[in-house]
Design a binder for these strands. Sequence first.
DNA 1: TTCAAGAATGCTGCATACAGAATTTCGCAT
DNA 2: ATGCGAAATTCTGTATGCAGCATTCTTGAA
Lengths: 265, 265
Amino acid sequence: MLLSPARRPAAHRPRARIAAAKGRRKSTAPGISTGHRVTIIENNVRQRAEEPAPITRRTLHDEIVTRVRDMIIEGRLAPGTRIHEGQLGQALGVSRTPLREALKFLASEGLIDLVPSRGAVVRRFTEKDVRDMLEVLAALEALAGRLACIHATDEEIAELRALHEAMIAQYAARNRLEYFKLNQRIHSAFALMSRNAVLVATHDNIQARLKRIRFLGNETPEKWQSSIAEHEEMVAALERRDADALADVLARHMHNAWERIRSVI
Amino acid sequence: MLLSPARRPAAHRPRARIAAAKGRRKSTAPGISTGHRVTIIENNVRQRAEEPAPITRRTLHDEIVTRVRDMIIEGRLAPGTRIHEGQLGQALGVSRTPLREALKFLASEGLIDLVPSRGAVVRRFTEKDVRDMLEVLAALEALAGRLACIHATDEEIAELRALHEAMIAQYAARNRLEYFKLNQRIHSAFALMSRNAVLVATHDNIQARLKRIRFLGNETPEKWQSSIAEHEEMVAALERRDADALADVLARHMHNAWERIRSVI
DNA sequence: TTCAAGAATGCTGCATACAGAATTTCGCAT
DNA sequence: ATGCGAAATTCTGTATGCAGCATTCTTGAA
């Protein structure tokens, strides 16, 4: 019903199941990767702020978390949708146990609500919720900007500039999806350059919740224009390492973001 | 081993199990409640920012989340401890399934790490982790303070003042635990008065991670003294509804908090 | 005595089974 | 037709079983 035709749960062959799920993922979920690779910024943070083991062996519930999260963000699971453990499990080709574990995780992230003995519901954000999130995000990005002015390397700043130029190119081409991805990436880059892992995690969490709404809000290229001007200011401020100016424009950018997306709530 | 003498898992009687767990909770875990009740502040927020249904029917995994979270915060599960699903499950009198679900939730909250096929480990915070958390918390509280100046009712402010006075009384009595609880409660109150549910949730999450460390940091009453002076400033600023002053003192308070606790990391 | 390879044990990851709550359906009376 | 109530169905919540990975223990050789 949701992903692929329901399949018989071939009894108890766990490893094969994982492989199947992984294989299918590539074909159905396009992922968030963009052609333009940010290596310096991301690597610097991984190296300095996170754990040293990059050997990511994914478990099933882990895989399911990203799958379902993507489904919600991409709108394939609409807000208000009741998540049916049996059906979704069948659609994903997994049993209910890891799926339920994944749902608990997503509930903690705030993407779904867990109603006792009635299951999980994709969370619907009210207008106030969105404003609240943007308000917090503004404060977090302002902090990130200040820290980035202190900690970012010249290399990273150059790469951010490159990302910005790439985004402008996508704007010129009216390529909405790629424009949006680069836009989000730039915001994440500020968080990463702060060298504060907690800030990165918190920022990512809230940004993820807003992702779909912000994407929908960027409907017309006219709306992108003002956003781009602010981005230009942001990059310039970082290049000057002017923390106050950067924090100011980031906060302003978030405020304007609300104006841009309020119509789609 | 951990909570109560291991008991036979009397086969499959779920509801009785819940009742047993609830009953036992009261007797073993003292909870975080303080004699002094904050009603106005908390009710106002519940009423305006959260869901309208206060009929909390707790499921088992939900109960386990709070139990295990408390165990970590109270230090009965020390950082670095490997969480043994079988043992902990027996100690809590529940099967592994809801326990595992609870662990996924706590992992998302950042209190434990999940290592594939090796289970859960109570997260150990480095010095940098703590500084990062305080840095973010400072930004969040500064925002909360600004918003509180706008949204708080006079009633709420009066109640905050009462909380503050109560905290001073506990200080005078050298009652460390009660002092600490009121202290945390005051910080939460600022978040609540912001009328921003996302801010409240984010703040609570980070505050919970820091709780144990901050408690340990408050070892000597001398350390409390400076903290109290800042609190006095905070309350006064809110009474004047002076957002800039409040944001400033909150940020300063967080900075000093680091000085107070850095020795116990 | 030390080290290494293999056996044994223990634990996690996932699937499935079962009980009870929620919801729907259906019969019946109004 | 419509509203009500009970049976039936569906789904969630929890327990348990099984397979494979990790770790520890054991044993044999250098």
